[in-house]
Simulated scan of single mutants.
Amino acid sequence: MFTNKQSIHLPASSPPQLMVVIDTEEEFDWNNFPDRQKTSVAHLNQLDRVQSIFDEYGIKPCYVVDYPIASDLYNNKTLRDIFASGRCEIGAHLHPWVNPPLTEELSIANMYPGNLSAELEYAKLAALVAKIQQNFLFKPTVYKAGRYGFGPNSQEIITQLGFEIDVSVCPPFDHRADGGPDYRAFNAKPFWFGNQLLELPVTGAFTGWARSCAEPLFRNAQRLKQIKAPGILSKLGAVDRLVLSPEGYTPAEHKKLTQDLMKRGTRLFTWSFHSPSVEVGHTPYVQNDRELQQFLDSFRRYFDYFFGELAGKATSPSQFKKLMENK
């Protein structure tokens, strides 16, 4: 997994760049056992709630779409129209439990594509690519493993299927408790791997004055959630685990994470979320109209900060790859 890694160093003098990656997927209960019957994507009809904001700021988002999204010609019409008009990029997002061939045993561990056999992981991703080609008239080159589940065979598989960019790495999270990968050793900076594959990680990190002790300190605090240990450490400024996302993180935390990472030399940032959050009731983060408004407001608050105060620039996975290739 991730062989031949080569770090990408962007000059400190270069303006920060922001891209948007949306996990575009069916509506399902994240806390329940996988259910192959949960394939509704009706929320796509509300996609303009966020796309209009991206258009306003000149952002070309990348919607990484899974099989239920790619298959539903009735509900994905808005997304297909956005793509046809050149206002977004389309990538592939593999949710194995709703992606044919449906031959694996249903389990939490098998929700991570990288846990499947190489043959089955390949067959599922090939089927997804074919469905995207059929209905979007485009072969995707950007890949995001469902549940960030990039596995030991994933690099070879995405290479064989013609992908050029991966966006699966999610630092600093450790998903081993239910069978997923451990990303604690990664940071938010992009890197090359394999035969000129580009990795663009999720923008996440530990922040705070604990520094090298942040990860073990946070891990121990998680075991003491009943006495609110993680919140206490956050208020003390010792350690926070933050992600640049409107789901579960506040505008103040978005700014804090960005400032901290910029001090560490990060110049590429990814704003990420899940498409069902555009409608009330599908994700834990948007359960009522007030939370929906807060969710949408956080986009403009962060974009105003990034493009105004930081004089940042908008990019996309494909645009950033071209930039790196021309250096």
Rank of each mutant, 00 (worst) to 15 (best):
residue 2 F to H: 06
residue 2 F to P: 03
residue 7 S to A: 14
residue 8 I to G: 06
residue 9 H to N: 10
residue 10 L to H: 01
residue 10 L to V: 12
residue 13 S to D: 02
residue 17 Q to I: 04
residue 18 L to Q: 03
residue 22 I to R: 00
residue 29 D to N: 10
residue 30 W to A: 04
residue 30 W to E: 13
residue 30 W to N: 00
residue 30 W to Y: 03
residue 34 P to R: 09
residue 35 D to C: 02
residue 36 R to D: 08
residue 39 T to V: 12
residue 40 S to P: 02
residue 42 A to C: 14
residue 43 H to A: 01
residue 44 L to D: 02
residue 45 N to S: 06
residue 46 Q to A: 10
residue 47 L to E: 00
residue 51 Q to A: 14
residue 51 Q to W: 08
residue 54 F to M: 02
residue 62 C to A: 03
residue 64 V to H: 03
residue 65 V to W: 10
residue 69 I to T: 15
residue 72 D to N: 07
residue 78 T to W: 07
residue 79 L to Q: 00
residue 83 F to Y: 07
residue 85 S to R: 09
residue 87 R to V: 05
residue 88 C to S: 10
residue 88 C to K: 09
residue 89 E to D: 00
residue 91 G to T: 00
residue 94 L to E: 11
residue 94 L to R: 04
residue 95 H to E: 07
residue 98 V to W: 15
residue 100 P to Q: 01
residue 101 P to S: 12
residue 102 L to G: 03
residue 104 E to F: 08
residue 104 E to R: 12
residue 109 A to V: 14
residue 118 A to F: 11
residue 124 K to Y: 09
residue 125 L to V: 13
residue 126 A to W: 06
residue 126 A to E: 10
residue 127 A to K: 07
residue 128 L to T: 14
residue 131 K to I: 11
residue 132 I to V: 10
residue 132 I to E: 02
residue 133 Q to S: 05
residue 133 Q to C: 08
residue 135 N to F: 01
residue 135 N to P: 09
residue 136 F to D: 03
residue 137 L to W: 09
residue 138 F to Q: 13
residue 141 T to G: 09
residue 141 T to M: 07
residue 142 V to E: 00
residue 143 Y to I: 11
residue 144 K to C: 05
residue 145 A to E: 03
residue 145 A to L: 05
residue 151 G to W: 01
residue 153 N to Y: 15
residue 154 S to G: 12
residue 160 Q to K: 15
residue 162 G to S: 14
residue 162 G to V: 10
residue 164 E to S: 00
residue 164 E to I: 05
residue 170 C to E: 10
residue 181 P to C: 06
residue 185 A to G: 07
residue 187 N to I: 00
residue 188 A to C: 14
residue 190 P to Y: 11
residue 191 F to H: 11
residue 195 N to P: 04
residue 196 Q to S: 14
residue 196 Q to I: 05
residue 200 L to F: 08
residue 201 P to M: 06
residue 202 V to D: 08
residue 206 F to Y: 01
residue 207 T to I: 08
residue 213 C to E: 07
residue 214 A to N: 02
residue 217 L to W: 02
residue 219 R to L: 01
residue 226 Q to W: 15
residue 227 I to K: 15
residue 228 K to L: 05
residue 231 G to H: 14
residue 232 I to C: 07
residue 234 S to D: 10
residue 235 K to M: 14
residue 239 V to H: 12
residue 245 S to H: 02
residue 248 G to C: 03
residue 248 G to S: 07
residue 251 P to V: 10
residue 256 K to M: 12
residue 256 K to H: 11
residue 258 T to K: 07
residue 258 T to F: 03
residue 260 D to V: 12
residue 264 R to Y: 04
residue 265 G to F: 07
residue 266 T to Q: 13
residue 266 T to M: 15
residue 267 R to F: 01
residue 270 T to K: 08
residue 271 W to Y: 13
residue 274 H to I: 10
residue 275 S to Y: 08
residue 276 P to E: 14
residue 277 S to L: 08
residue 278 V to I: 15
residue 278 V to P: 01
residue 281 G to D: 05
residue 283 T to H: 14
residue 283 T to Y: 15
residue 285 Y to N: 05
residue 286 V to C: 10
residue 287 Q to W: 02
residue 287 Q to M: 06
residue 290 R to Y: 14
residue 293 Q to L: 06
residue 296 L to P: 04
residue 298 S to G: 13
residue 301 R to D: 00
residue 306 F to C: 14
residue 311 A to I: 15
residue 317 P to L: 13
residue 317 P to H: 11
residue 323 L to W: 13
residue 325 E to Q: 04
residue 325 E to H: 11
residue 325 E to N: 05
residue 326 N to I: 04
